[in-house]
Computed example of a mutant assay.
Amino acid sequence: MTRFVSIGEAMVEMAPLAKSGQFQMSFAGDTLNTAWYVRQLKPLWDVSYVTAVGQDQMSDQMVSFLQDTGIDTQYIQRLNNRTVGLYLIALKNGERHFSYWRGQAAARALAADPGTLDRSFSNADVLYFSGITLAILEGNGRARLLRSLARARAAGKLVAFDSNLRPRLWESDDHMRDWVTKAAETSDIVLPSHDDEAVHFGDAGPKATCERYAALGATTVVVKNGPGTIHYRHAGKSGVMQPAIVSDVVDTTAAGDSFNAGFLSQFVGGVSIDLAIHAASNVARRVIKGRGALVPL
């Protein structure tokens, strides 16, 4: 059985309901979304989530939600005087805009203890994290997380990373670029989105994004590009794929997260990179036709 471990921040999600002016509460977050979709796509896999939550009622509800979906919660830390973050989605023509409340989020301390991280990673086959995972961490948490991932990688674990650039979470753009680069150097698979990379790293096109991350040592790079051409590089060879056009987009929330789940669930299972990208695009296409981050497949 493949053991997939996702690391990051789970939040309360408030998503707008169609034409009602009301909101529906759920739980989501970029790495949680990917874990949730992997769980749907690979029911025989052991999917775990590594984070920290509080000891309040909302944290209890979140842990129960994860357990009810079949995600292993044994490595979720419970911290005093903390709670879980919240975000609200506003939609315009299918594009989403977020407002966040996460100052007291327990997930900011998920990497406080390297021993806890090492134990969480010890039985994993695949470890997955993102730029948001790094961005929210307090103190020396970023360095501790990357050191633990490096030890796991040296022990034969596969490490996958989505750069997921969110400059508002970082002290500066320079800090963001520096830590994202360090994270990519720690990873076997990198799954960036070209639009963000072009803005913050100056990449001229998806091919440039692909080549930059490959040069940092990643064996596999797949550059998401919205409805545009996907560029990839694997084991020294490059290629492109054009996803099918989606005309009836409802909500692009978790498009990239679900793509990552579709790709990793196939590629790690031994499917060729072309077929894995095709499967990932199909998953994302289904997700953006629904509302909210977690859309039943």
Rank of each mutant, 00 (worst) to 15 (best):
S172F: 10
A261N: 03
K237D: 01
L86V: 08
F23I: 06
A204M: 11
A52Y: 01
V84L: 13
N93A: 09
G115W: 05
T220M: 06
E95M: 14
S99K: 11
H200A: 06
L127E: 03
R233Y: 05
E171H: 13
P43V: 06
T209C: 10
R108I: 00
D56I: 09
I71N: 01
R286E: 06
V5E: 00
P227F: 01
V223N: 11
W170I: 07
M11A: 01
D30G: 09
W36G: 01
G239E: 04
Q104P: 08
L216C: 12
W101G: 03
T229K: 15
M25I: 14
S20T: 14
I132T: 07
H278D: 04
G292C: 02
R168A: 07
V221D: 02
W170T: 03
E138W: 04
G202E: 09
H97C: 05
A215S: 05
W101M: 10
V5A: 00
V287D: 06
K207R: 12
I76K: 00
W101Q: 15
S48L: 10
S265P: 00
V268W: 12
Y232W: 15
A184F: 08
N81G: 08
G103P: 01
V12R: 15
F27Y: 09
E197H: 03
P43D: 02
H278V: 04
W45Y: 09
G85Q: 10
A152K: 10
S120H: 05
M25Q: 15
F27M: 09
V268Y: 09
I189Y: 10
K237L: 05
Y37A: 03
S20Y: 07
G94N: 05
R119G: 09
T83P: 07
G202P: 13
G256M: 12
S265N: 06
V250A: 07
D60S: 12
S64F: 03
T186H: 00
D274T: 10
D173N: 13
R233M: 11
N93T: 11
Q77W: 04
N140H: 07
G115K: 05
A135F: 02
H97K: 13
S258A: 14
H234Y: 13
P167N: 11
A52Q: 05
P167G: 14
L191E: 05
E185W: 06
E185Q: 10
T51Q: 02
A284R: 14
D251W: 04
L134Y: 01
K289R: 14
H278S: 15
T2F: 13
A111S: 14
K92E: 08
R144E: 07
G269F: 08
T51A: 06
A154E: 09
M58T: 11
G156N: 13
V53Y: 04
D248L: 08
R168V: 14
Y37N: 01
H194F: 12
F27W: 13
T253V: 12
N164Y: 01
A28P: 02
Y100H: 12
